[in-house]
Simulated assay, not measured.
Amino acid sequence: MPRWFYQLASPRWCYDITGKLLPLFAWAAVLLLLGGTAWALAFAPADYQQGNSFRIIYIHVPSAILAQSCYMLMAIAGAVGLIWKMKVADMVAKCCAPIGASIAVLALATGAIWGKPTWGAWWVWDARLTSMLILLFLYFGVMALNSAIENQTTAAQSTAVLSLVGLVNIPIIKYSVEWWNTLHQPATFTLTEKPAMPVEMWMPLLIMVIGFYCFFAVAMMLRLRNEIVSRERRSGWVRELIQTQFR
């Protein structure tokens, strides 16, 4: 195993490294999201079929992708906590759930807003929409388990198992439009195929996707740092940190 993997087991090391990375990701998120939004709204051409209503794609697609990525990170962190008993991995898994749930809500809400002018309905029991709704419920389930179980170790183990079981939903979300006859359109762009949209339309979308990931990194590190301080509050380094901040 590489050295950094074992360093992740140290709450203090994680707290220090996230403190150094936070400003970088925060600035990147601000610049990318502002630049991508300006490009998407002011310079990207309107869709020849949907007109300007398609512009919600610049929020809907990044949030849908990020909601799935966040769940996978939560499951992986839970597995690491189960196998290697790493406290920081358990903290990461716990911090992922509320962020992922919020992003999933955003994806579902923007999808409904986009669906009204496109399909004529706010909601249909489409395979893609239904599997995304299940993803949201899985996030809620993880959050409920964390709140219901007082013992942190038991809560981490239980939520890790639930997260790993729920991973089966991720390929269903991704391939639902190929496996079933659905209203939802296929993937807007993939890493293995040339985008169907012109560069003037997919480039700001790519910028928004990266911006969303940077925003997630900021939110994740902020929650993780708070969780570390809360759990390690009896440690000497946390006491020194608090004393230094209040001098």
Rank of each mutant, 00 (worst) to 15 (best):
A46K: 11
A101L: 12
F54E: 08
C96V: 03
K116Q: 08
A46D: 14
G115T: 04
W119N: 04
G115C: 01
A121E: 01
G120Q: 00
R55Y: 12
A38V: 10
A101V: 06
G111T: 02
A121K: 05
S63L: 05
W39C: 06
I57W: 07
N52Q: 14
G19E: 07
V124C: 05
A44R: 04
L31H: 01
W27S: 14
P23F: 08
V124F: 07
F54D: 08
V88C: 06
P23A: 07
W125I: 09
C95A: 10
K87G: 11
N52P: 08
W123D: 02
A89M: 07
G36A: 08
F54H: 10
I65S: 00
V105M: 15
W125T: 11
S53L: 09
V61K: 00
K87W: 04
A121Q: 11
L31K: 06
K116T: 02
I113G: 06
G36N: 11
G100D: 00
Q50R: 11
Y48R: 12
I99L: 12
M86G: 06
T18K: 05
K94G: 01
M72R: 13
W119I: 02
P98V: 10
A77S: 15
V88E: 07
A107D: 02
I76S: 14
L82A: 11
W119C: 01
A104I: 04
A107P: 04
C96E: 00
K85R: 14
A29R: 00
V92Q: 01
G120K: 01
W119T: 03
A42G: 13
T37V: 09
Y71D: 08
L66A: 05
V61D: 00
G36S: 09
S63C: 05
W39A: 09
D47T: 09
A28K: 03
M72T: 15
Q49M: 12
I99S: 07
G81V: 06
A89V: 12
A79Y: 15
L33C: 03
P98F: 05
